[in-house]
Each structure stands twice: as C-alpha cells, then as structure tokens.
Amino acid sequence: MTLAHFLAVNPPYWVETLTKIGIGLVAVLLPTGALVYLFLFKMMSFMQSRLGPMEAGPYGQLQLLAEFGKFLQKEDIFPSKADRFVFAAAPFVVLVSTFMLVLVLPAGPDTHFIDLNTGIYFAMAVSSISVIGILMAGWGSASKYSLLGGIRAAGQLIAYELPLVLSVVGVVIMAGTLNMKGIVAAQADFGVWFIIPQFLGFLIFLVAIQAELTQPPFDMPVAESELVTGYLTEYSGIRFLLFFIGEFATAAVFSAIGATLFLGGWTIPFVDANAEIMDYIGPLVLAGKMILIAFLIFWFRITYPRFREDQLQRLAWKFLIPLSLFNIVVTAIFKVVF
C-alpha cells in the first residue's frame, strides 16, 4: 500500500483512496503532457526539419498550457441533427477506460494503485471499453465522415485486439501469472527481461498497440485526407481536447504496460528488485522505460505513410494472428521442455 509504506502509518481506506486519486491524476496527465510536448511537438518538428513551438515559454515549454487555454475558450457546438446524449457521453467513456487502465501499473515492490491477481487481463479488458466510446462518437455525430471514421475505428481496434491479447499470452506463459508485479518479479528471477526470449511477442505487441492507439500508419479512422478527422469531425473545443487527452494518455499507459511486460517494469539490472530503495526510484525507472517505448511508437508514427483499409485487415488477420499463435506454441514448448 502506497501511503502506508511512505509515511509508516496505516491510514483508513478513504485517506488512501484520496491519495491514490491525486497520484492517479498526475500519473495520467503528466505523461500525456510529456509525450505530446516531447514527441508530438518537438521530435516531430525536428524530424521534419522545423523548430516546432518556440514562442510560449523557453523553448516552447508552455505551449501545452497555451493550447489548453485555447481549447477551454472555444464555443461548444452540438450539431443540430446529432444524437445529443450519445454525442455528449462519448468522451466520458473514452476517459473512463483510460483512468481504469492506469490502475494496474506497478511502480515498485510496494508502490501500486491496486494489486489485482488478474492484472494484465484486467488491463486488456478495460482498454477495449474505449472502442465503445469511439463508436458512440462516430454514431452520435450524425455525420457521414464521423460514421465512416467510427466504424473504421471499431473494425481496426477489434482486429488488433487479438494480436495484442495473444502477444501478451507469451509473457504470461513465461511468467506463469497474470499479476503485473508477478510478471516483473518473474523477469527478475529469469535473469533477463522478457524482451529477449519474447522478442517476436514484443514486435507483435508494438504493432498492435500502434493500431490500438490509432497512431499513423494505422490512422485510417481519423484519416485527414479522406475523412476530415473521422469520428472527431463534429467535436470542437473542450470535447475535442478530451478525446485528444484520452488518446495520448492511453498511449502513455500502453507504453508503460509494454515496459512492464517486456522491459522489466520498475527493475534495473544488478539491483535487487525488492530493495527498499526501489519504491522511490521505481516510478522514475518505469517512466524512463515508458518514454523509451513511446519514442518507438512516435518514431513509427512520423516515419511511415498510412495503410489502406484492406492492407490493415490483411496484416492483422493473415499475418499477425497466425504469427502470435505460432509465438504461443513455441513459447509453450520451450517452457515445458526446458
């Protein structure tokens, strides 16, 4: 329990939960801001031979605040034909999914929000709630672009859900548990991080999260050149910003989940994973590894052009799913034989 550990007191449940809410808000919003500024504003600009935001604050560091202020002041527009309830409820559903997802991340031997026995399974389950939110946004807008975008998004997210879940099975076989801390402990016991024995699984996981996050080259649901902005077409101002936060917060959380599954979570080589000190530097180590995986996601995002819809479905069903089943069988054989 987080608070009990740091303050050496045993607080009642509500105090602990309030602390967790505070930390949870930081854990969702801070990495989101970091990813957007570091990768989307700055790295993308440098990779495209431009400077990016430079005016707001030193080196454009306050650009995020400026954007936030701008979005807050925009007029709230509901299309007159829209299904008002569904249209308004969609951002809620997306954000609920993100906030539940962040809960499973462990950041130290005793630093965690909740310690579920079914940690990674729970994460996979709640991450798919956002599909409903996106489909609601697409349907509720009553616009042709939105409907196409929403349906494309649903088709894409469910197609890549399977390789994502199946690539995680390889890690679960290696670790023998679904608990996130158990998986980290198993990597410490195993000697090397699971990225080495599960390299194929890691690659499938990377491609699958790229598609789950609808980042280019898998951004057909929001394809600007075909669908304006897909399911986001009719959203403006703060409602658009909420979807934006949801998208990049989920990118951060998925990167952190990838870091936990394949890069050893909060552990560092040659340091005892259960040492007292890990409770303090563990969150920083996890953040560092999260940034590393997020870098890969954004690097692919900036490098590759968009797929076509048929290429996307072909890649998922004819390549990634058989490949991840193959990965499961090979991992299982190695686990039983050796």
């Binding site: 939960t17 967790k20 809410i21 949870g24 808000l25 807050l72 709230d76 951002p91 809620f92 954000l95 609920v96 993100t98 906030f99 539940m100 962040v102 809960l103 929000f113 909740i114 703060i238 409602r239 910003l241 909420l242």
Partner: peptide, 17 residues
C-alpha cells in the same frame, strides 16, 4: 478503487466541461 477511478474520470471530464 477501480470504480472510484472510473468516477474520477467522469468528475474530471465534467469539471473541464
């Protein structure tokens, strides 16, 4: 706690709106 975090998201969205 999972339920409370779900509620937190709803509160955050409502607060921003």
């Amino acid at each position: 706690t999972v339920g409370i975090f779900g509620l937190l998201a709803v509160v955050l969205v409502s607060a921003l709106l």
